[in-house]
Write a protein that binds this DNA or RNA. Structure first.
Length: 267
DNA sequence: ATGGTAGGACACCTA
């Protein structure tokens, strides 16, 4: 089974590109983030024609996650138990949730995750991000406590660069989110709950990234960040036979600012 | 301290 994750930055703008990607790589399951459309706007026909079932949770403007699968799509769940809601906070404008979608595909429990962007170290969104990750740690730890050998993949845009090598220049990030000790500890918390980064051993850094800002020629200058991850439970990690970050997808006009991450699993 | 570019409900916010 071939599993991929991609922050697509608008599924409507890039539906054809995603379709071509699915075919080029022979992908079985694709988790998408930042679909940026309502449920009724999702281009279902494009992917249905290719034999994929899909589930998606959307919003008019931001966020939005989806899972496409041609190996079954069962037990679809919006959000994880305990997932905090930004809009429940007082004194701040409601922001869209639509950040987590789970489904069982080909026997693997797949979660497409779009971790909140902390915006800046002083912004209350960073507190929300940490709260969200803590709730994920608790939920994901609970799944393994109940079933230690469950094959579970937590995939998506984590908005965290866990290691210094995951950004092109640490000095640029000294007072920024994505690299703060608190965010890195939150990421490590999920790892400690029983989920390993299954891509890094097969695509080690430095200089290996999944995201390049659209501005300032970051991509041609190779100034990127590794912030998209496939974290796998013990049972899932033991089945990983390959991993690729498809840097080619960041090239050319009409590219997302993120590259897809692809993992091969033995049956 | 700002700007650069790209997305969206588009002249303004978010990434």
């Amino acid at each position: 089974m071939r599993l991929a994750t991609w922050n697509v930055n608008s599924i409507r703008t890039r539906a054809d590109r995603v379709a071509a990607f699915l075919q080029r790589h022979d992908v079985d399951v694709l988790a998408l983030q930042e679909t940026k459309c309502r449920g009724d706007q999702f281009p279902e026909m494009v992917f249905g024609a290719l034999g994929y079932e899909m589930a998606h949770v959307g919003h008019s403007q931001w966020n939005g996650v989806a899972i496409l699968s041609r190996v079954g799509l069962d037990d679809v769940t919006e959000g994880f138990p305990g997932m905090p809601s930004w809009s429940s906070r007082e004194g701040v404008d409601p922001a869209p949730e639509a950040r987590a979608l789970g489904a069982t595909c080909g026997g693997v429990r797949v979660w497409s995750l779009y971790v909140p962007n902390g915006r800046s170290l002083a912004d209350p969104h960073l507190g929300y991000k940490l709260e969200w990750l803590e709730a994920l740690r608790v939920a994901a730890g609970g799944w393994l406590a109940a079933e230690p050998e469950a094959p579970i993949a937590l995939v998506g845009d984590w908005n965290i660069a866990p290691q210094d090598d995951d950004v092109w220049d640490m000095s640029v990030f000294t007072h920024s989110t994505h690299v703060s000790p608190a965010e890195r500890a939150a990421f490590q918390g999920v790892v400690d709950a029983g989920y390993a980064d299954v891509v890094r051993p097969l695509a080690p850094g430095p200089g290996v990234y999944t995201y390049w800002d659209y501005t300032q020629l970051r991509f041609p200058r190779r100034e990127g960040m590794r912030i998209d991850f496939v974290l796998g439970s013990h049972a899932l990690a033991g089945r990983v036979s390959g991993a690729v970050i498809d840097r080619e997808e960041r090239k050319g006009k009409g590219a997302s600012d993120h590259a897809p991450v692809i993992v091969d699993l033995t049956d």
